[in-house]
Computed example of a mutant assay.
Amino acid sequence: MSRRSRFARAGLTATACVLAFGLTACGGTTKESVQSQAPAASASASASASANPGAPLKEGLKLAFLPKAINNPYETIVDNAGIEAAKEFKAEAKEVGPSDASASSQVSYINTLAQQGQDAILIAANDPNAVCGPLQQARDKGIKIVAYDSDTSQDCRDIFINQASSEEVGRSQVRLLSELIGGEGEIAILSATANATNQNTWITFMQDELKKPEYAKMKLVKIAYGDDDDQKSFQQTQGLLQAYPDLKGIISPTTVGISAAARYISSSKYKGKVTLTGLGTPNQMRKFVKDGTVAKFALWNPKDLGYLAAYAAAALSSGQITGAEGEKFTAGKLGERTIGAKGEIILGPPFTFDKSNIDEYDF
């Protein structure tokens, strides 16, 4: 069996930010504070409805994808795949969103989509707290909320489509970097925004993984934030390398960050001296793998993520599922999926790309 077929069978068709656990944000509030501010019922009336697994998918559903930022290449891949998937069940889908990934930038779009009477809003949250109130108001109008890539508070959505287990994403990034640098040296993390849910979750597991005895000779010296902006991520990479002359490796669990960091390192004196890994797409990273800047990096299939999110939104809007643990639905070509604890559906494990396989994938 070829690598491509094994990859497809793992639920990772050809397409590829994080581990993603992915999350982005800002501000000084916490997830716990948002939950305490949410209404006691915390869910729209539909959340208490009974699922009807045998119900057909409704035709003519209106779905709206709200990415962290519309100029994020990874988010574009995800959303376009979801929009194409919607055609399979005769729904109307679109992508709208801000051009920056700030904490509150998505709020006005949520309000507008709610006024338009969308059947479902699919959101990759920049900040779990800033979007919670508006999402709750949309749910009160009967609109289904599907978080994907980067979660919001559990009280403010129906389900979360997670690209991979957050714990596995975080821990595997540390394992991968340790393998590449021989298990010792100073390391840094180049993240997206300081409040991104997925990023912060992954980083928490990275920090916990680093506590294990086998990483005793590795030291995390800095967590930097490029705000999912190419130029800022480029500058943050430069700053890390200047501030820490003994730096051995960088983990960037964001597609924007890893490509910007690779671009800087590839034309600097640090090429071949500082190891970079993280989460990226094959098309972004191909030239950096081939020129020796990056040996290995990871990701899942972003097209499958968008595809699964679209079908989950349709299943919710059609009454097949409510978001309760244990419910099942069929996601087109991806087959049957089961909702896990806290309304989470996991796409599948991350996949490692290197020079031996990267040309097999085009996304």
Rank of each mutant, 00 (worst) to 15 (best):
4 R>M: 12
8 A>S: 05
9 R>Q: 10
10 A>R: 14
12 L>I: 01
13 T>F: 13
13 T>I: 14
13 T>D: 12
18 V>W: 03
18 V>F: 11
22 G>C: 13
22 G>S: 15
25 A>G: 15
29 T>E: 14
31 K>Y: 05
46 S>R: 06
49 A>W: 00
54 G>H: 03
54 G>P: 06
58 K>Y: 09
59 E>T: 14
61 L>T: 01
61 L>P: 08
63 L>P: 04
64 A>S: 08
64 A>E: 11
69 A>G: 14
69 A>R: 07
70 I>A: 02
73 P>K: 05
74 Y>T: 04
76 T>S: 14
80 N>I: 00
81 A>R: 06
81 A>V: 01
82 G>F: 00
85 A>G: 15
87 K>A: 13
89 F>R: 11
91 A>G: 15
97 G>E: 04
99 S>Q: 10
105 S>G: 07
106 Q>P: 11
107 V>W: 05
109 Y>N: 07
110 I>A: 09
112 T>P: 11
114 A>V: 12
115 Q>H: 06
116 Q>N: 14
118 Q>K: 15
122 L>P: 01
127 D>F: 00
127 D>R: 08
133 G>W: 01
134 P>H: 13
138 A>S: 07
140 D>F: 03
148 Y>E: 05
151 D>V: 12
151 D>M: 13
154 Q>C: 12
155 D>N: 15
163 Q>P: 10
165 S>W: 07
165 S>R: 14
171 R>C: 02
174 V>R: 01
176 L>P: 02
178 S>N: 10
182 G>K: 03
183 G>E: 08
184 E>K: 15
184 E>R: 13
187 I>F: 12
187 I>G: 07
188 A>T: 11
192 A>E: 05
192 A>T: 07
192 A>M: 00
195 N>V: 00
205 F>R: 04
205 F>N: 12
207 Q>H: 06
208 D>L: 12
209 E>S: 04
209 E>V: 04
215 Y>P: 15
216 A>F: 05
217 K>Y: 06
223 I>H: 03
231 Q>T: 11
234 F>P: 02
236 Q>P: 08
237 T>G: 09
238 Q>W: 00
240 L>A: 03
246 D>R: 09
248 K>D: 06
251 I>H: 07
252 S>I: 02
253 P>M: 08
262 A>F: 10
262 A>M: 06
266 S>Q: 05
268 S>Y: 07
272 G>W: 04
274 V>L: 08
274 V>T: 06
274 V>A: 13
283 N>L: 08
292 G>C: 06
293 T>K: 03
298 A>E: 14
301 N>H: 08
302 P>C: 02
304 D>C: 12
306 G>A: 11
306 G>R: 12
308 L>T: 01
311 Y>T: 01
311 Y>N: 02
313 A>V: 00
313 A>F: 09
315 A>H: 10
324 A>C: 00
327 E>I: 03
329 F>H: 11
342 K>A: 14
344 E>M: 10
345 I>P: 02
347 L>A: 05
348 G>Q: 09
348 G>Y: 02
349 P>H: 09
350 P>E: 06
353 F>C: 01
357 N>K: 06
358 I>E: 07
360 E>G: 01
360 E>A: 00
362 D>V: 02
